[in-house]
Design a protein around this nucleic acid. Structure first.
Length: 260
DNA sequence: AAGTAGCACAACCGCGTCGCA
DNA sequence: GTGCGACGCGGTTGTGCTACT
């Protein structure tokens, strides 16, 4: 029925990682770099599945991890990004240098969720709890990834084929939900990847495009969309070095530091 | 001091997506 | 064009720690 297991479970360890396993994994990645997770455990002499190794490295062992408590600034940023992106933890993590999606997800579920509740804000909708029931469906403006209808309407309403509402200044859904969010989106290389070697899939140089501007479609990582209006044509052709990464975003990411 | 509840976070699981043959 | 394998993501579970009774 289901898909085959990612690895031979009979001969793999599970549960907490030991110091020795950590050391082996670190040593191997230092020597050979990230990538090819499936074959890594065997090559590194670990009785773990590749998935587990990847998780351990990304969430715990990576040298650029910040760890420690989240700052108030980070809190607020996470809230803003969550209101904008929803549970796209990897995208949110991409805007928080040194933080992992897992860490942010956990933090959201344990701290921020409660924090918002105590403020009387629904953590899912980011609307006042009392307000949520009274809001009619057509008043709700959210970023949706469902397909929109006609091209003409899209252009008229600034809705892309990805169903993303591109806000006009006065009726921006983002502004409505995040009044203090500066929507002048600028593109910058993903912060945490600046010094990283490109990985097999997410590879691609960011070149020196920090001053170029991607259209909103590209900035959200919708690859090769017909709605792409980039002047620099980064979305055309293959994605190998087009600057798309997370959720397709590679270079076309929102630099939160420009928002603040 | 012992038992229990709640919290925090590491790790696992299943599915979607992408790239390649 | 299609199928398969590998990777990445989000949701969920497990486990250790701390606070409280």
């Amino acid at each position: 029925m289901g898909r085959s297991p990612c690895c031979e479970k009979a001969h793999t360890n599970k549960g907490a990682w030991t110091k020795e396993e950590d050391d082996r994994l670190i040593a191997y990645i230092r020597a050979h770099g990230e990538g090819c997770w499936r074959s890594l455990p065997k090559a590194a002499g670990l009785l773990r599945c590749g998935k587990s190794c990847r998780l351990r490295w990304i969430n715990y062992l990576r040298p650029d991890l910040k760890r420690g408590n989240f700052t108030e600034d980070e809190d607020e940023l996470i809230i803003k990004l969550h209101s904008l992106l929803g549970n796209k933890w990897s995208l949110i993590a991409g805007r928080l240098p040194g933080r992992t999606d897992n860490e942010i997800k956990n933090y959201w579920n344990t701290h921020i969720r409660r924090k918002l509740m105590s403020r009387g804000i629904d953590p899912t909708t980011h609307r006042p709890i009392n307000d949520s029931a009274s809001v009619s469906q057509d008043q709700i403006k959210t970023i949706s990834f469902s397909n929109a209808n006609s091209k003409a309407k899209e252009e008229e309403k600034n809705v892309t084929s990805a169903g993303i509402i591109i806000s006009k200044e006065e009726n921006s859904p983002l502004k409505e939900r995040c009044p203090d969010l500066n929507l002048e989106l600028r593109i910058s290389p993903p912060y945490q990847q600046q010094n990283q070697q490109p990985f097999k899939r997410s590879g691609g140089s960011n070149s020196s495009s920090s001053s170029s501007t991607l259209c909103f479609v590209c900035s959200l990582g919708i690859q090769n969309s017909k709605d792409c209006t980039c002047s620099n044509g980064v979305s055309s052709g293959s994605s190998s070095n087009s600057g798309h990464g997370l959720l397709g975003i590679k270079a076309g990411v929102l630099d939160y530091r420009a928002w603040r």
